[in-house]
Amino acid sequence: MLYGITWLLLIEVVGFATFVIFLSIFRTIPDKGYSISKPLGIICLSLATWLLSISEIIPATEIATILFFIGLIICSLIIGTIRVNTLKQVVKNNWRIISLTELTFLLTYLIFFCIRYLDPGINHTEQPMDFAFLNASARTITGQPLDPWFHGDTISYYYFGYWIFGTLSKISLIPTVATYNLSLVAIPAMTASSIFALTSIFLKF
């Protein structure tokens, strides 16, 4: 349960920080980009750690990854402080769609959290392979996860999705046996909230 709350808070912090940073870019969108701020922030954070580590500039250690996260928060605080009046006005004018989008995210998160809580097994179909790739992505610091079946070689498979949640695992310090299931909670929650907001925008709800 504690892992689920920690994971949720991490996603919320990343999402809100990204919302503040990209506010001016998405100013023409009705929800000002709030609905996509969570996945966008997570992807940007993961992409930064991957690019710098694979370029051998900064290794993707837990400390480095956490520092990237702190850097995101600091940038958000600076921009938010400078544009605090604009931010307040945006939230005031768009509180309805922002609130409903967030409610959709939280409800979906809760539903899938309960599902994974009742059935946390990682033991069928491609789950063992997914778990192995997640572990490899979370353990590497070079940007190239080691192949769990071919010692000494790197994964010759698209692995960035695993890298994304490996990055969140490093930031949250939650073991991958838990973040595997929490990833399966976060994905549908972010998808549902994004689809809801997109539908609302098109239907002018």
Rank of each mutant, 00 (worst) to 15 (best):
H124G: 05
D147P: 15
E62Y: 08
F165C: 04
K38S: 03
S46F: 01
L51E: 14
G33F: 00
E62W: 11
P148L: 05
L118V: 14
T61Y: 01
I54N: 00
T154H: 15
I25W: 13
L100Q: 06
A136W: 08
V90K: 01
K170S: 00
W95D: 10
P148W: 01
K170N: 03
I97N: 01
A138I: 03
V91K: 00
S24K: 14
N93K: 14
L103A: 14
P148M: 05
K92N: 13
K32F: 10
L72W: 09
P120H: 12
W95E: 13
G152S: 00
R83P: 06
I141V: 15
S46H: 04
T101V: 06
A48S: 07
G80E: 04
D130W: 07
I141Y: 10
K38D: 06
Y158K: 05
D31W: 08
L107P: 07
I66H: 09
L100F: 08
Y117F: 13
R116P: 01
L40C: 00
D31L: 11
D147E: 12
I79F: 06
A136T: 10
I97Y: 00
L40R: 01
L47R: 14
C44L: 13
G121Q: 12
L146D: 15
L110M: 09
I66Y: 08
F133S: 06
S169P: 03
I78T: 06
L134Y: 12
H124C: 00
Y158C: 09
Y159D: 11
E102S: 14
L110C: 07
L134F: 11
L51I: 14
N135V: 04
I79G: 06
T65A: 07
L45R: 10
L52D: 03
T140G: 08
N93G: 11
F165P: 02
I111A: 09
G80A: 04
I57T: 01
G121L: 12
E126N: 10
W149Q: 14
T140I: 09
V91F: 04
T104C: 08
M129A: 13
I122A: 07
L77K: 02
S99I: 07
H151I: 14
E126D: 08
